[in-house]
């Protein structure tokens, strides 16, 4: 059964369970090594973390897995969902060792017609709040769901 336009539109505002994410020093070390990133300091508590950790924290603590997110939109990994865009704003640089509260929701959902057929473009956004209660960063992403059956 196809995922209806009404179902798609009703998804806007749906909140993620959210959670907490700690940028563990070992995780910062491994990530920066894997991303060929320059090292800053010795990965001790308080050293600035790579800005991609905004995305890692958001996805890592959104409270559901990818399969469940795809299922919210009547899809699975086999349908070939694709990354659309990632937009990050950093208000206070993330720090190695710090703990962040992650909250997020579906913020947009549109059905579109492209050269390769119908697809749904879904926007989902997160805020990262630090231990002092400040919004440290925001992360807004989009995902593309091909709709071959629409």
């Amino acid at each position: 059964m196809s995922f209806s336009l009404e179902q798609l539109q009703a998804s806007v505002g749906r909140a993620f369970p959210g959670g907490e994410y700690v940028i563990e020093p070992w995780r910062a070390w491994l990530a920066q090594d894997a991303m060929l990133a320059p090292t800053q300091g010795d990965f001790a508590q308080g050293v600035e973390a790579h800005p991609v950790f905004v995305y890692f924290a958001a996805i890592g603590a959104m409270g559901i897995g990818w399969d469940e997110l795809f299922a919210w939109f009547g899809a699975s990994a086999a349908d070939g969902p694709m990354f659309g865009e990632c937009a990050v704003h950093v208000e206070h640089p993330l720090a190695v060792g710090a703990r962040y509260r992650v909250d997020g929701a579906i913020v947009s959902a549109e059905r579109k017609q492209g050269r390769s057929g119908c697809f749904d473009l879904v926007g989902y956004a997160f805020t990262l709040t630090d231990g002092a209660g400040r919004i440290a960063a925001t992360c807004r992403n989009s995902i593309v769901f091909p709709r071959r059956d629409v």
Binding site: P38, P51, E85, A87, V90, P93
Partner: peptide, 17 residues
């Protein structure tokens, strides 16, 4: 970050895949 001198100087990015 290499150009600006630190990770903390990268304030925004928006990238399309």
């Amino acid at each position: 970050a290499i150009w600006a001198g630190s990770y903390g100087r990268v304030r925004d990015f928006r990238l399309r895949f």
